[in-house]
Design a protein around this nucleic acid. Structure first.
Lengths: 119, 119
DNA sequence: AATACTGGTAACCAAATGGTAACTAACACA
DNA sequence: TGTGTTAGTTACCATTTGGTTACCAGTATT
């Protein structure tokens, strides 16, 4: 069973949009996965190469959730050995501006320094 | 003791900027807190009002981490009853474009629908 | 003397998340 | 027959995170 990410959802009387967005794309791996896929179409194994620190199980779960949210599409080719490709849906592509901003900030000296100091 | 957020840090051979950024501002509450503070100066109690679902302990920890990262500043006024105010540093304000993108997306029909379906 | 106020802290417990290792299908190739 | 391939699943366990309750200082108010 896939754990329901929306359990992270917070009842907020102000109905905060940031809360809503983070309930969907927050979490340790989702932005990284979405950013890896980007405009491309990626196989499961390729994602594992790009994000070696993620385990089979967790990657599989995260992909399922993203698919349930309609942010990515999973295409299974009936071949042997099996081939499955993931790509962003139109909804998923609407997240690209967020991902670009995050990536931009993550490239700054500031971000690099914060990580260094904290390590 | 404050749990070290950087434990979330992922060793990534590609040295991914999204991973870096999410190690710093990822997590359930940080973007929400940063967004609440925004351009303002907010007291601890006010933050608890804006984010009622967060507990004392967790809010306190998150604020400490954000302060350690140099993203917010904590100013303690020697008054009675005590008054403490938090505001974004210049570094913290560099996150505003990310937060604005997240908030913008969180306001879309799409985000609202995803939350509804998943609830 | 008791209560309220703010901004926390400490001890303890529960739940969510993440990780590991072994295993699977179904065929190709040696 | 044994090995390799991909895309996972399963069971189990460890870590992380979050939540609850009680408590504190130090003054003002009732």
């Amino acid at each position: 069973m896939v754990t329901n990410t929306i359990s992270r959802l917070i009842e907020n009387p102000h109905n905060c949009p940031v809360t809503r967005a983070m309930s969907i794309i927050g979490g340790k791996w989702k932005p990284i996965i979405l950013n890896c896929i980007g405009e491309k179409s990626l196989r499961f194994g390729k994602l594992r190469q790009y994000i070696p620190a993620i385990s089979n199980k967790v990657l599989s779960n995260e992909l399922k959730e993203l698919e349930q949210f309609g942010l990515i599409e999973r295409i299974e080719y009936k071949e042997l050995p099996p081939r499955v490709e993931y790509h962003l849906t139109q909804a998923g592509r609407s997240l690209l501006p967020i991902l670009h901003e995050i990536a931009r900030w993550g490239k700054t000296e500031l971000a690099i320094e914060i990580i260094e100091k904290a390590s």
